[in-house]
Design a protein around this nucleic acid. Sequence first.
DNA 1: GACTGAACTATACC
DNA 2: ACGGGTATAGTTCAGTC
Length: 847
Amino acid sequence: MKTTFIPIDYDYFDFEGRNYIKIIGRNKEGKRICVIDTCHIYLWAILEEKLSEKAVKEIREEIQKIKLNIKGRETQVEKTELHEKNFLGKKVNAIKIFATNYKDLHDIANRLDLKGIEKRRGYDLGFITHYILEKNIIPLNWHEISGEMLNNSNEFGGIDKSLDIDFCIKLESAKPLKDEKDSNDIDKTIFTPKVLAYDIEADEFRIGEGEIIMISLVSDKFKKVITCKKHEKTKKLDYVEYAESEKELLEKFVEYVKKISPDFLVGYFSDGFDLPYLKTRAEKNKIKLSLGLDDSQPRFFKGAVLTGKISGIVHIDLLKFIKTAYSQYMQSETLSLNEVANEFLGEGKKQFEIKHSSKLDENELERYYEYNLHDSVLTYGLFFKFWPDLIEFTRIMQEPIFNVSRNGMSSNVEDYIIHNLEKFNEIPERRPTYDEIGSRRKIEKYEGAFVLEPTPGLYENISLFDFTSSYGSVIVTYNLSKSTFISQEEIKKEKKKIEDSYSIKALNKEVHFSKKPGFFPEMLKEIIKKRKQYKEELKSSNLESKKEEDVLKRAKSNAFKLLANASYGYQGFFGARYYCLEAAAATAAFAKKSIKEAIEKIDKSGYKTIYSDTDSIAFLLQNKTKTQVKDFLKKLNSELPGIMELELEGFFKRGIWVTKRTGDIGAKKKYALINEEGKLKIRGFETVRRDWCKLARTLQNKVIKEVLEDGNEKRAMVSIKEVIKKIKKREIDIKQLIIKTQLKKPISEYKAISPHVIAAKKMLGKEMPIDPGALIEYYISETKTGKPGKKQLIREKVKLPDEKGEYDIEYYLNHQILPAVENIFQVFNIDIKEIANCKNQKKLCEF
DNA sequence: GACTGAACTATACC
DNA sequence: ACGGGTATAGTTCAGTC
């Protein structure tokens, strides 16, 4: 039979010693299809140079003899082939060694310690990656497939009988449907999946320690809260369904998931909370959480954090994807569902103070249902907000969405590389061993970016240039990568010449990179090119366009941008297959050189550079016009090597740079600009730091705004005086004075007991859940808890927000408000501390 | 017990 | 363990007098 097919979930199973892929997806009619297929399994033995034909033949014969008996399963090498391949850019002869089961590849590799074999590669990719590489059936791309229907046949042990699907196909052929570019048929590109969002509420925060009291489910035209906390008097809400016990609640949950049978089961922080909680409670109640299409229970994988996988239904934890794909652009201070939903959906969580269920009265219970339901409503909304990005990330990395949605950027870069190696006839590099990672991590850091020390002051008519995909274009321009790096040994052996190479001083030595294009820079060149292309296509369309085509384009543009930016970090990342510290260090060094040269040219051309950080330059227009600046930019670009390019970030009416708190030199990474429309761009100031109290932040923001709008400090002076008076009169609401600091590690590991650690300890005493990552809130009170007489530490005055007490006037004045504005007034030669504390001017003191 | 620089800690920038 | 280095600035710690 023939059908269309979009692969969603990839899994595999063994049958008669062989690996089979099991892909769950849908066709255009919305039918759920399971595709069974297999592919060749192999690894590579890279041969030493200049081996005789006879020697190669002998090695192949030797390999052919390998027989394994592992865990009672006997297998052997099926066949070998000799290929001309590339490994790290070098031409090599390699033996392709075919095996029956991918689980044997490691063991076969261990047996290949033969003379003449230099390296063994391609045994650590995992079967799913291997399959996608071999068969080119890329996740979330539409395919046209044909194959044999397995209708309750006994093939593969009757696998399809136990699967809740429409039909099961043993694949014969598959080809991708036409590229969306060649077609106006929009539903070839957009696929609207069936999604079920869920959220649980439990009596304890610790996984599995309390009862699950309700679960909300939201899908298309479907809203439900199942609960085992029924209040007799409560009028029944139409979406609430009662269960007699936690056990029945869990059973009903499983029933609903099975009935709705979504493509995606989506939660928020559900890898770390909801799913493991459900699992533990199901175990306690001695029932099976058979959520999988094959009735299997969720499987959990240990990584840095737990991940929960359900067979056939893709479990998505939206938090993880948002963290890697979007957090760098976000305004939210935390990635809590409330803040993230507010930012992307314009609507936050329902207000509700969570209590133990035994303490809830009927009104509260009803509000609890609403609260629980709303969390799923938000999660559902967020899923579709990010669906275009999820699709495009998946299509670009070519790995299953389950993985891509959880990957960090380094894994994304690596997936992209692995799936694009074939174009370069490259054999994949292996993962570093545990020991290699260890020694890489010990290596001293290399020198990074250049930051120009600004001269503090208020400036007018400023222009900002920055290098587009700065580090990425450096890598491409100077061909910096593991495969193009010319090592000391190679130079010594005179195997490679360094006269005609890209060279720079980095890591306290001269490093050289071949000019022959390497696959990594070539891939990156393509990434940057695509990013540019999609960005330009979008520019001609409406930026806010909601057309599906544009939405996908925006997602693509974003994915390629992130890939380009992450590729520098990737080469310096200790866990990378293509780790190359020299390349990373050289990238930073070349970038530093480029920006310094650009600054020099800018200054020589009648402008005045006032600040620069890594890839951006702020300079004064002096007497020049905007047109002149634009022409000058063109000239600069014509002189830049390779794909290096500067772009105009914008023109600004005014800008302020301040001094460091200690000493009177200019502070780096701290400035504020205002453009002609009056829009502010504030960097580094306390305003943008979440560990300063709201009062200090809003006041500083106001002061910056007024100073930049007016060009003088008069209005700002009035603002600050008002606030000082209010503080001294105790007119400030505690809410404005709450300091939020994140707990970065377990309380016991802190060497220095700072205020937020004390606050965390207090919370622990109140049985509040405190884990690393929690944002601790507190304020500084006047209460003294330390020994009398001794100099008081700030931590001795810490109080939790709901603890009664008076705020410490002195602290908030001298540790929050004044430090936040002091340096700004200093630009106008005003000592705001003296004014506030009435030093040296008792007669004039206004407070 | 007060003072001071170092250490520790969190957060931001690009 | 799950991108990198550069930078500011707070609070506490530990050594000195």
